Structures are given as C-alpha cells and as structure tokens.
Simulated assay, not measured.
Amino acid sequence: MLRYIESKPASAEIFRMVIQKMAEWGCAFTPVHYTVVYEYVSGINPPLIEAVNGLLKQSSSLVGEDLEKIFVKYIVPDYVLPLNDYRGSLAKQLQSILQNISSSTTRTAQEAERVKNGMESYSHSLQEDGLDEKTFRTLVDAVLKDTLSIRESSSSLNAELLKNQKKIDCLQDELRIAREEAMVDPLTEILNRRGFSTKINDLFREGKFSGIPCALLMIDIDHFKKINDSYGHIIGDKAIIAVSKVLRGSVGENVFIGRVGGEEFAVFSPKTTSEEGLALAERLRQNIMKIEITNPSTRQKISTMTVSIGIDLAPFSGEWERMFERADKALYASKSSGRNKVTLWTSKTPDIKNSKNPSGSNS
C-alpha cells in the first residue's frame, strides 16, 4: 500500500510544517513522533487527526507516551500488526509460483510420456527382420533427439524449481522481518509487550524450561512524570532509552527484556533460583542508578534516576501470565514503600489496586 505519494515540492512543504508543529508541541524528534505529526499535517489519517486534536484540547504540548500510543493504534495496524494485506499479497505470489511449477512439471511429464512411447516404437522397429542401414540410422537419430529433448525438459524443470525456491525464500524472509518488526518497540528497539508475551508463549509451546524455576521482573522508572514535566519529553525519551540499554547490557544471553508500558519494563530470566533472581534485580537497580543524562539546555546532569522492581519466582508453566500479576503486585509494593527498591512477591504481598499511583504521586 502506497501511503506517502506527495510530489517533491509538496513533501518539502509538509516537512517544513511537521518540524514547525513538533517544535510548537514540544515533541521529541524521533521517527515515531515525526510519523504521527506527518500524518496529522498531511491530512491522510482522519482518525489520528481526531485523536491528536483531542489531546491538544487538554494540553498545548504532546507527551511522548501519548504519541506512541497514537502511533500503535492508528499507524502500526496499517503496516505491521494484522499483516492482512501482506498475507494477501504473499498468497497471490505463492499461487503464481505454484502455477509456474505445476506448468513446468506438466510439460516435463508430457514430454516424458511422448519419449516413452517413442522409445517403445523404436524398440519394436529395431527387432524387425531386414532392417536396412538407412532406417537404422534414422532410428538412432530419433533416439538421440528424444534423449536430448527429455534432458532439456528436465533441466528446464530443475531451473524453474530453483528459481521459484529462491522466490519462496525471499517471501519467507520478508514475512519473518515483518513479524519481527511487529514485536519491537520503535523507541528502544527492544521487545514490546506483544513481542515479550509472544516470546514467552513460544518458549512454553516448545517445552523449554517447563517446570524449571524462572524469574519475572517488572521494572518501573520512579517519578517519570516529574522527569517529563521538569526536563521535557526529549529528556523523558532519553531516560527510557538509557534504561533499556542498561537492561540489555546487564542480563545474560538467554534472558528476555521488553518495554511493556510507557516507563515500564519486564525481564524474564529462565533457570533462575530465588537468590539469583534477587541478585539480578538488585544489579539492575544499581546499574540504572549510574545512568547519566544531561539537560541539553543547561548541559547539567539531571537528578539520579531510580527504578522500583517487583519480582516473582515460580516454576515455568502454562499459567505463566499469573507471574505477571504477582510481579506487578510486588512492583506496586516497592513503590508504595518508598521506591528505589526490590520486592519479592510472597503470599503476604499486599494487593495494591491504585496502579501507577501507589502513594499519591505518579510513578
């Protein structure tokens, strides 16, 4: 589907308007934010325009998290999530490939049948008495000609199969890339919530780690709204990216991480004991405290960044989603007891319902 088809002069004018709007609304200059504002300015996405106007009625600036939600709801479905259009195109291409192969196979089969009948006729002729030299040479030439014909037909079929195999391989690669992109958070380039859940579901279906103790960590940046309000959304996005980089650099190869909310992350660590899970959570908490983000206008370091962490440890099973619930409860317990803490879920962990605001202030 061609979505952006403006002429060069028109696209230049839209680009100028997009930059102006992004500056006016206080948007961070990221690909996701640019795409949202581009579709707003160009007028090609009415539902998105209505959603943005609704936000602008509430505030003159646009929060990065709100823009990302709009991107996922009004833009991503057209490209990645359903993949319906792509599947339709893929089906047509596969149908064409199969028709080509079928046609080549039919031609080869017909040629083989013709040669078979010819060979039987030549065999009978060669067994006849009184066969003269001229007739013998004619039969030999015919046998050689038909042998060459069936060889060429077989070579043609093999070439067709090879060519179409390459086409199928390309289609498979395109589909794989599209599916992978649907699982990735565009800001941090780590798994999004959908991708994170899919990865764990795949592990369970494959029978990996079944019944083996695993750890699930829920991590939330403390006072994230205050960071946005005090330093702007560009700094807020930098904080989210910085945390994602620390997570990637602090876990092992077989540990999965994802951004499952605005400032919320999840870490799944298989084959992990209670001691190892708590040690991992504490290491992440301390490493995140070392993050240094500079305010571009003052070139000064912003205040120390901290996170609250909730952790659940349980044998891996088909009910792994309950680990999310328990780790979430532990996370809220960390935030309600002062933040910048690690809490391990137990049966005594309180069920704090006031999510995102456990002690009267956001995050």
Score class of each variant (00 low, 15 high):
residue 19 I to M: 14
residue 363 S to L: 14
residue 11 S to V: 06
residue 58 Q to L: 06
residue 138 T to R: 10
residue 90 L to C: 11
residue 325 E to A: 01
residue 340 N to C: 14
residue 136 F to A: 11
residue 152 E to P: 00
residue 221 I to Y: 14
residue 66 D to E: 15
residue 98 L to A: 04
residue 263 E to S: 13
residue 74 Y to Q: 05
residue 299 R to M: 02
residue 157 L to M: 13
residue 98 L to T: 04
residue 110 Q to D: 13
residue 97 I to K: 08
residue 166 K to R: 11
residue 350 P to R: 10
residue 176 R to A: 12
residue 189 E to L: 01
residue 88 G to V: 09
residue 198 T to W: 06
residue 56 L to I: 01
residue 189 E to W: 00
residue 227 I to D: 08
residue 324 F to E: 09
residue 172 Q to C: 09
residue 289 M to V: 10
residue 183 M to I: 05
residue 163 K to D: 03
residue 83 L to V: 05
residue 332 Y to E: 12
residue 243 V to Q: 12
residue 254 N to S: 12
residue 128 E to D: 07
residue 212 I to E: 12
residue 223 H to A: 11
residue 270 P to E: 05
residue 225 K to D: 00
residue 75 I to V: 13
residue 16 R to P: 05
residue 122 Y to Q: 03
residue 325 E to K: 05
residue 167 K to V: 02
residue 298 T to Q: 01
residue 148 L to V: 02
residue 193 R to E: 14
residue 275 E to K: 11
residue 112 A to G: 11
residue 130 G to L: 01
residue 14 I to D: 10
residue 89 S to M: 14
residue 178 A to N: 05
residue 112 A to F: 09
residue 245 K to D: 12
residue 271 K to I: 07
residue 320 W to E: 04
residue 85 D to P: 10
residue 246 V to I: 12
residue 354 N to V: 11
residue 141 D to C: 03
residue 73 K to C: 03
residue 219 I to K: 11
residue 360 G to E: 07
residue 270 P to M: 04
residue 316 F to H: 09
residue 207 G to V: 08
residue 7 S to N: 00
residue 260 V to S: 11
residue 114 R to V: 03
residue 172 Q to S: 12
residue 357 N to S: 13
residue 324 F to Q: 08
residue 175 L to V: 08
residue 346 T to Q: 07
residue 170 C to K: 15
residue 363 S to H: 15
residue 225 K to P: 00
residue 219 I to A: 10
residue 218 M to G: 01
residue 344 L to C: 09
residue 206 E to L: 11
residue 159 A to S: 02
residue 170 C to D: 14
residue 211 G to A: 06
residue 316 F to C: 08
residue 323 M to N: 13
residue 116 K to D: 01
residue 168 I to W: 06
residue 206 E to N: 10
